[in-house]
């Protein structure tokens, strides 16, 4: 996802000071953990069930956090082009030329990071659309999220100096039932004959219903969801689809805020770490197989035992 703006070695790019703070945090957490669970430290099951998974997640959290802190001191970070997000100008331009509205579906999610990220993208589209006087209709299925979205969209109009242009009917709570929401959003897309249709957030079976409705009216469609099972439907029916962690990179990409881009660097470094762990696991498993360390129906021995211990380090914490 990221690449430093100026060429420099990997080691030189490491945020040493922040990583030291992160290491200190990990050490402090370890001390707290040992104090709290002092009675169990000799129990292997306790470490495997409650400790190892937490240490891994805490380590990754500290890594991302250290890069966020580092980015506050550093310069801008290059983020590669994400076509779906670059298309915002195109979709708004098309809607402006055609004199038709844009619909933005926030999906079925409640007040969680998935829907908040979708709202951030929606607000960017709305801010662009306000400049051209184009209408954006935001639809949602969660009343808690409705309260947040209504306030944020209203604020966007006020910040653009056009509070009077905000229409209460442009942020719509349709229904909290999945297919009632789908039919309502679908009807809206067809009745308004929208020029562009965005679908960002938590989607399930209704994803394709909405995407096909947009297709029927010839709308440009941009979609993004972290729900892996729905990504193929969006790819089949939409012009642009945001895949995987691109979804969470959206705000960094759209705002170019160094702190947000810094978190992308942290994500990428975390990914490198996980890839290294996987590579090591593959090597260990292969070597254990070749040396007979994984006999069928018997306890692992030799390298097999090492592999067994290694895999236990990455067991999900209870």
């Amino acid at each position: 996802m990221e690449r430093s703006s100026a060429p420099q070695s990997f080691l030189a790019s490491l945020p040493v000071r922040e990583l030291s703070i992160a290491a200190g945090l990990v050490a402090a957490a370890a001390i707290v953990g040992l104090t709290v669970g002092a009675g169990y430290w000799k129990t292997t099951e306790y470490w495997q069930t409650f400790i190892f998974g937490r240490v891994l997640v805490f380590g990754l959290t500290a890594l991302v956090l250290s890069h966020i802190l580092h980015a506050r001191r550093g310069g801008p970070v290059f983020v590669r082009r994400i076509p779906g997000l670059t298309a915002v100008d195109e979709t708004v331009g098309r809607a402006t030329e055609m004199g038709r509205p844009i619909t933005f579906s926030l999906g079925l999610g409640g007040l969680d990071i998935i829907t908040l990220q979708a709202l951030a993208v929606a607000l960017h589209v709305i801010r662009t659309a306000i400049r051209f006087g184009t209408r954006v209709i935001v639809t949602l299925a969660d009343s808690t999220m409705y309260a947040v979205a209504d306030e944020a969209v209203r604020e966007s109009y006020a910040a653009a100096g056009r509070p009077e242009s905000y229409n209460v009917e442009d942020v719509r709570f349709l229904s909290d039932r999945q297919f009632a929401y789908a039919s309502s959003a679908m009807g809206l897309i067809l009745r308004e004959r929208v020029a562009s249709n965005y679908m960002f957030g938590r989607f399930f079976a209704e994803s394709l219903i909405l995407a096909e409705a947009g297709n029927q009216v010839g709308a440009i469609q941009v979609a993004g969801t972290p729900i892996i099972t729905q990504i193929p439907f969006f790819i089949a029916a939409c012009d642009y689809t945001i895949i995987g962690d691109e979804y969470y990179a959206a705000t960094a990409y759209l705002t170019r805020e160094p702190v947000l881009s810094g978190s992308l660097v942290g994500q990428d470094r975390s990914k490198m770490f996980l890839i290294a762990v996987m590579g090591l696991g593959v090597l260990l498993a292969t070597a254990a197989m070749l040396t007979g360390g994984l006999p069928v129906g018997e306890a692992p021995s030799g390298l097999g035992a090492v592999l067994d211990g290694f895999s236990r380090l990455f067991t999900e914490a209870k």
């Binding site: 990754l60 991302v64 966020i68 908040l116 972290p226 892996i228 995987g244 969470y248 994500q267």
Partner: peptide, 8 residues
């Protein structure tokens, strides 16, 4: 997605 969610 998991790492992105963590950062977010």
């Amino acid at each position: 997605i998991g790492l992105g969610g963590l950062a977010m």
